[in-house]
Write a protein that binds this DNA or RNA. Structure first.
Lengths: 341, 341
DNA sequence: AAAGTTGTTGAAATCGATTACAAATTGCTG
DNA sequence: CAGCAATTTGTAATCGATTTCAACAACTTT
């Protein structure tokens, strides 16, 4: 027995309905006048044969695939997964499909996936927190490929981007800790060279300056954005100085590492140590005490960029505003407020 | 200025190299003899024009797209995301792309995505823990569409499937708790009607029977596979009976809900309450104490099914074994062992 | 020098759907 | 009933790459 019977084509439908392929196409797309009688017979034939137009043929004819690629460094990171959900929702509503590409934290893989635009597998590419540099991305855009970036600002007239106000958010978080009476506040960066880390550090310093508090370099360390990294960085911090009473961590995963370290050292949160993270990770809401955190509008960021990029595909060029800096809310929860018993 | 210069086509390359399109194709695919001189000129032209064959045209010609769709009920569930990673790795190695579809827990969306096979956007579909019933899936397969299922057994000669030995794994987990001296062990199911929940309950009962322990219905509750659900279910259980000393939760999220409830009630884990979950969620390794859990080979499950389905696409029918029941390891960690301090 | 190899090459058909254009049909007016 | 307009329909070209087949060139062999 053969593998499968081939699908019905538009010619099969035409033959069954006793008309030409052109008429079938007109019925299906409403692209021209068709007599009621012919329309009826075509519709009947389509039903009988369960006909669906071949997507590859449509793509070839229109020179567009109605598909976007989304390149992400690790699909397991829930922060990215939520952005993807936002993209998927909007893209789906606009009849676009999305091809997900997990670059597994390898810059080379990320670059490989760019070929999806070049061989026209996709109409455009969305990069989430790309590893490729600005110059490389600009080069792709200059060659006429549509791409958009989530997570950092890009200054290229054809590349729409959406990113968060890291400085402002960090300033708000640290100012909140200061308002709670903390004067020695540690900062846990992710990777020392990541834009996100850098900007959050900037916000941290800005908040200290505004409150006329001194900047103490011994209260700064890095935890690689991971839970174990946060755990170890906290232990290092404590070794250097036991005088601080609060920590602002550049993401929630590291903040959870701090929770574990505090549990082991018998330091109560928030009484002995206040903690604030960034990301609004799902887990943070359910630990005890609940983790205060900066909540970036992940879903909205994905949705916004998808809409922009798809618009651009239609218009031929990037319409209206191209760069969007979105604000984040500070969610104050149990890990940073004193007044709970 | 226009949107973008159109890509070079095979005809452009042919003209530039002073040969016919057929020769260009032969050079690119090694599908026929080409003189060294012609080959050289073609390669040069390809480089100069940065030519890449149009994917849609290739798909149309070969009547295959080298793309699989993966339909999942929620991409945020890390359990599913890890399976997807396994699929992506294997598929990528076999030169297949994957289209990710998030059905958002809606059965109707899941059914909608099946059209991707019918309009030949994809060559085959992988469903992870599908909501669609066996009969519906069988109907698609009967109509000649290639599909595979991860998460439950399907008895259809053309549908490969990979699933875990839920009964065995649950039996092992509960037997482990019994070995630790527990006699009254609660069970938290996910949804009462989910296959996974049902089979894990079966394993729970089997372990009790083997140890000649009585089955107590008041020690059974459901938490909808979520953290808050687990939290609330635990509180309900405690209200009904405070005599149990251990809980086996049908997944780690619910187990984390139990952690929170125990923290609030001042019950120490594992001394006052032993906990074992299922999934080997990333978070479980970092909570205190670390969560004992059943670890299904998520990555391998995805990889295995992807390979099977792609094989089937080549062969025309499902070759060799079609159903794979994979075993899970029990990871014993701090939440279920007494001997720590 | 005629016949037969071997090795290269291009013209044309094909995949399935869309669309510009021309042809055919119908209805209406003078 | 001739002539024109309006409506409906089909033919053929097109999108870009692949592949069959026949043609051609450059040889060797007799």
């Amino acid at each position: 027995m053969p593998s499968r019977k081939p699908d019905a084509t538009i010619v099969d439908v035409a033959r069954t309905a006793g008309v030409s392929a052109a008429t079938v196409s007109r019925v299906l797309n409403g692209s021209g006048p068709v007599s009621p009688s012919a329309r009826g017979r075509v519709e009947e034939a389509v039903r009988r044969l369960r006909y669906m137009p071949n997507a590859s043929a449509k793509s070839l004819r229109h020179l567009k695939t109605s598909t976007l690629a989304v390149i992400v460094s690790d699909i397991l990171v829930s922060y990215y997964a939520e952005i993807i959900k936002g993209i998927e929702n909007t893209a789906g509503a606009l009849r676009y499909k999305i091809l997900i590409c997990d670059a597994q934290n390898q810059r080379e893989k990320e670059a490989d996936y760019m070929t999806l635009a070049m061989d026209r597998t996709v109409d455009g590419i969305i990069l989430i927190a790309p590893m490729l540099g600005d110059a490389e991305l600009a080069a792709y855009a200059d060659r006429g490929y549509a791409l958009g970036v989530i997570g950092r600002r890009i200054d290229h007239p054809a590349i729409p981007c959406v990113y968060t106000d890291n400085v402002g958010a960090a300033t708000e978080a640290v100012t909140h800790l200061i308002a709670q009476g903390h004067e020695r506040i540690a900062f846990l960066s992710g990777f020392a060279d990541a834009t996100d880390s850098y900007e959050r550090l900037e916000g941290y310093m800005k908040a200290l300056r505004q409150a006329s508090l001194p900047f103490r370099p011994e209260l700064i360390d890095s935890g690689g954005f991971s839970e174990p990294g946060g755990y170890e960085a906290f232990l290092r911090l404590r070794e250097r100085s036991s005088a601080f009473t609060a920590v602002f961590a550049a993401n929630d995963e590291m903040a959870l590492g701090i929770y574990r370290a505090c549990a082991e050292l018998g330091i109560p949160i928030p009484a002995g140590m206040a903690v604030v993270g960034v990301d609004n990770n799902r887990v943070g809401r359910h630990v005890d005490p609940a983790l205060s955190t900066v909540d970036p509008p992940k879903h909205a960021m994905g949705a916004l960029l998808a809409e922009k990029l798809i618009d651009q595909l239609g218009e031929g060029r990037c319409p209206g505003t191209r760069c969007f800096e979105v604000g984040s809310r500070l969610l104050v929860r149990g890990s940073s407020i004193f007044n709970n018993k």
